[in-house]
C-alpha cells in the first residue's frame, strides 16, 4: 500500500494538481485536504502547495494561517509529523510561525518566473536524504514575494543549527549565489537561502518548485529527489509509529 500524503487546498492554491502529480510520480497516494476541514484524514505527511492562498491579501500566506486545516497542520507538526511547504506553502508556514523568517517582495520588484539552480546544504534530512550528492538542482521559481529575510542574529542561528536546507547556486559551478544583484539569486534572498527547516527538522519550506520538476517531459526531474525523500521519510515514520491519528481539537 502506498503512503498517503495530504495536499492542502486553499482558495487560490494553484499548484495543487502539480503537487498531486509529483506525489503520484514518486509513488505516493495524494489526499486532497480542503482548507475548511479540521482533520488530516490520517495522512502520513502534509504538503502545502503553491498558489495565492486567499488571494495573498494583506501578506502572502497570512490569512491561510488562521484556516481550520492549518490548526490541524500545526498540531501534526508539533507531534513530529512531516510538513513540506512549497512557494506559497513556504510563505504560509512562515506566517504560521512553523518556520523561521519571512518572505519579502523580490528585491528586483518583478514577479520572477524562470528556472533556477539550488543545492541542498544537507543530505541527511527527511527532505533531502534521497538526493545522493550535493549538486545543482534545476527547477522553476514563480513568485513575487520570495526574498528570504531574517535578522542577522536569526540568520547566524539558522546557519549554526543547520536549518538552511537549500541555497540558490550558480548552475555551472554549484557555488552559492550572492544576495544582491546576482542573477543566480532570483529574489535577493539573504545568504541566498532558498529553503529552511524548523529546529526539530520535521517542517521544511522552499520557494522553488520541485513538484514541477519531476519528469524529463517537464524540463527537469531534479525535484524528484526532494519529493521522494519526503515520501520515504513519511512512510518510515508511519511504519515506526503506526497510523498517525491527528485530532484538530487542540
Amino acid at each position: 500500500m502506498s503512503v498517503r500524503i495530504g495536499v492542502v487546498i486553499f482558495p487560490g492554491s494553484n499548484r495543487d494538481i502539480d503537487a498531486m502529480n509529483a506525489l503520484d510520480v514518486a509513488g505516493a497516494e495524494a489526499v486532497p485536504l480542503w482548507h475548511e476541514g479540521a482533520s488530516l484524514d490520517g495522512v502520513a505527511g502534509v504538503l502545502i502547495p503553491g498558489g495565492f492562498a486567499y488571494g495573498d491579501y494583506l501578506r502572502a500566506g497570512v490569512i491561510a494561517r488562521f484556516s481550520p486545516i492549518m490548526r490541524a497542520v500545526a498540531g501534526f507538526a508539533e507531534d513530529g509529523g512531516l510538513v513540506l511547504g512549497i512557494c506559497n506553502g513556504f510563505q504560509v508556514l512562515t506566517e504560521a510561525h512553523l518556520l523561521p523568517g519571512a518572505l519579502l517582495r523580490n528585491r528586483g520588484v518583478r514577479f520572477v518566473s524562470r528556472e533556477v539552480a539550488i543545492a541542498a546544504e544537507r543530505l541527511d534530512t527527511p527532505f533531502t536524504r534521497r538526493l545522493g550528492e550535493r549538486r545543482p538542482l534545476r527547477m522553476p521559481v514563480a513568485h513575487g514575494e520570495g526574498c528570504f529575510f531574517a535578522d542577522e542574529g536569526t540568520l547566524d542561528r539558522l546557519e549554526a543549527d543547520r536549518q538552511v536546507l537549500f541555497r540558490y547556486v550558480d548552475p555551472g559551478t554549484g557555488e552559492a549565489a550572492g544576495d544582491d544583484g546576482d542573477a543566480a539569486n532570483p529574489n535577493g534572498s539573504l545568504r541566498a537561502i532558498a529553503g529552511v527547516s524548523n529546529a526539530a527538522g520535521n517542517v521544511a519550506g522552499l520557494m522553488p518548485h520541485p513538484e514541477t520538476a519531476v519528469e524529463a517531459i517537464l524540463g527537469s526531474a531534479d525535484g524528484l529527489g526532494i519529493v521522494s525523500s519526503f515520501i520515504a521519510s513519511a512512510a518510515e515514520r508511519e511504519r515506526a509509529g503506526g497510523p498517525i491519528l491527528v485530532s484538530a481539537a487542540r
Binding site: L104, R105, N106, R107, G108, V109, C147, F149
Partner: peptide, 9 residues
C-alpha cells in the same frame, strides 16, 4: 532597516 523594494520602485 528592512528592505522595501516597493518604496524604491
Amino acid at each position: 532597516g528592512i528592505l522595501d523594494p516597493q518604496g524604491r520602485a
